[in-house]
Write a protein that binds this DNA or RNA. Sequence first.
DNA 1: GTCTATATACAGATAGAC
DNA 2: GTCTATCTGTATATAGAC
Lengths: 199, 199
Amino acid sequence: MTEASPQGNRTRDRILATAARLFSQHGYDHTPLSLVAREAEVSKALILWHFESKQDLFRAALGRTLEPYYIDVGDIGSLDEYEQIKRLVDLYFKFVRANGYSVRFILDMMVSESAPDEVTSHVNRLYSLFREMLTKAITQGRDNGRFRSDVRPDLDAALILTALDGILMEQFLNQATPTNTSEELLEHLKNTALERLLS
Amino acid sequence: MTEASPQGNRTRDRILATAARLFSQHGYDHTPLSLVAREAEVSKALILWHFESKQDLFRAALGRTLEPYYIDVGDIGSLDEYEQIKRLVDLYFKFVRANGYSVRFILDMMVSESAPDEVTSHVNRLYSLFREMLTKAITQGRDNGRFRSDVRPDLDAALILTALDGILMEQFLNQATPTNTSEELLEHLKNTALERLLS
DNA sequence: GTCTATATACAGATAGAC
DNA sequence: GTCTATCTGTATATAGAC
């Protein structure tokens, strides 16, 4: 790992960007170094000079893929609980829509149990954070009387989240139901979930 | 493809069963023929005498893996709509629990878009069938007054199904939520879904 | 039908010149 | 830093004896 020249190495960066793209598209096993080399317009040997091994390149590329995986809820605190939940659900949905390629890739790794610990922990952390925000909104709404007093914040939050996951996953399998679009389902989820919560 | 002796070929069958198990456990790419050969206690050459290629073996093994993938709802017609829905949800859940290994395997293929058409069409057919049964139960319940008159059978059925998918998928990612078990979530799903439907 | 031995291809990784 | 040439391992598949 030679010390990079000031402001980083351009070639190394091109290799990394190319690798991140190809791994996400074809997966680790179906992305030979020869392909990365061709697309990045370098030799295989150069890749292995910049990175110790293919696995090492993969880890580095994953870091780049995970960069957009964080939550920015904006000024959610200023909204009432009803709107907070709608906002959170929409954010989740939009994020997956916007990052379809890499979400599919990461989902694939997790299902096949081939995801590095770094990835699973990152995803789990995000997931927990999101669920906690939902739980908090429901709890608040219950305590200030906007929601029913018998809601179960943790269970209701978890159920909303799993329904959301199901909608999103269907997009990755068949193309959702033939009759209903994912958008319709998403609206229905928000309507029924909030109807249940309101007192 | 030599004509099998009466009642089928025992060795060929052992190869097939071994291959089905190993492919499900490790996936196509990580199941070399040498491993199948060792576990089935035959030579690699013999496998390729019985099957034209590794791909051919894989297709044949998939057929076996898919055998339990059918729906047996029993005498569901004799139940009222409320119980029908509970029964259907439980059946779905139990099936995935009982076939965890192969469900994960098939899910993996579909997410990575490497599933043969035969598999996706089989799974989609089952999925549609199940959703139609749910839709029918809700429609019936609405028409005979047990459920609210403003239910949306197709949307409500689809939402129940996606929530169910979400619960099941969480089992394949992290080990569900730390606080809630999948069983608790399943109960909560049934309770809230049916509460919404009832008039 | 079943085996051993071999052909062929391609992957990741290294050696060494420039 | 970057290349060409090569090593080494392992995979699928074939040839041919029994």
